[in-house]
Design a protein around this nucleic acid. Structure first.
Lengths: 138, 138
DNA sequence: CTTACTTTGCAATAGCATTGCATAACTTCA
DNA sequence: TGAAGTTATGCAATGCTATTGCAAAGTAAG
């Protein structure tokens, strides 16, 4: 189990330090994307900047992707297995719940292709849907 | 011409003060969405907070809409004629150019409907496409 | 002209993101 | 093993955007 997490780090050329194991473990247990604040509050007391840099490292190495959901605080969520740092395959939709204020990845909702005006060339895409999530709409 | 701008304010129940006329005039001359900073730099020296509140007022009254393009700074652009403060009809796509760093509205590119997982209810949607704009790809 | 309301400008604050630097931890190689 | 070098961590400090409080200036109405 911890073995798993350790391997996951090594596979991405990230040294598996105690801190990183803890953070990655914490991330795997989340059902929603979390902010730096969430991470800080959810873990045993640790230095905020170290957590920040841990997330940045994870992002560079393709372990997590960051989400701008419009709340002002960047959220992070685990990547699918086939991401790398250069080229995140996170072309899935993100959903922000106006009720519980949580941000979810919707990996099965693919972003459709769009026709852009002449001359515009698409490289990335970021789609946030806001509404009410499954839990809150019960 | 100034008459136009003045009417536009009055139509939206915004008192046409000197400041507001200047800001709205400035906005109509833009080809891309602008941030508070852009506005401050582009205009005759004025108080930043006043400009901020002017934009907020315009947004409430349906004159402009705000755009979160992921750069950290909120951008503003004029609304189509049929927007109101309650219900912005800005369901168009926004395009961020990685080259010139400008953000454009693509009013003719409509956001497609998406099938969400069971239980998720959509209320709003925000789609940013990043890439290279028409000018920069020439 | 006076009163009431709106707008403006300044000061101040809060929150997120980010960097510099010194220390601690860990690696490596002789 | 131990000295040197690299990497990671923790603390301090800073920058930027957003936002509010309050008092002064401006505007409108009677």
């Amino acid at each position: 189990m911890t073995q798993d997490i350790e391997h996951r780090l090594k596979n991405r050329q990230v040294n598996p330090t105690a801190m990183r194991l803890l953070v990655l473990d914490f991330l795997t247990k989340q059902t929603a994307a979390i902010s730096l604040n969430d991470l800080e509050k959810g873990m045993a007391p640790s230095d905020r900047i170290t957590l920040y840099r841990t997330l940045k490292t994870f992002e560079e190495k393709g372990l997590v992707h960051s989400i701008e959901d419009g709340t002002g605080a960047t959220k992070y969520a685990l990547c699918e297995q086939d991401c790398d740092g250069e080229n995140h395959h996170d072309l899935h939709v993100h959903f922000y719940c106006n009720s519980c204020k949580e941000t979810f990845c919707l990996p099965n909702t693919r972003i459709p292709e769009l026709a852009l005006p002449n001359g515009f060339k698409q490289q990335e895409m970021n789609l946030i849907i806001k509404g009410v999530c499954e839990q809150c709409s019960k």
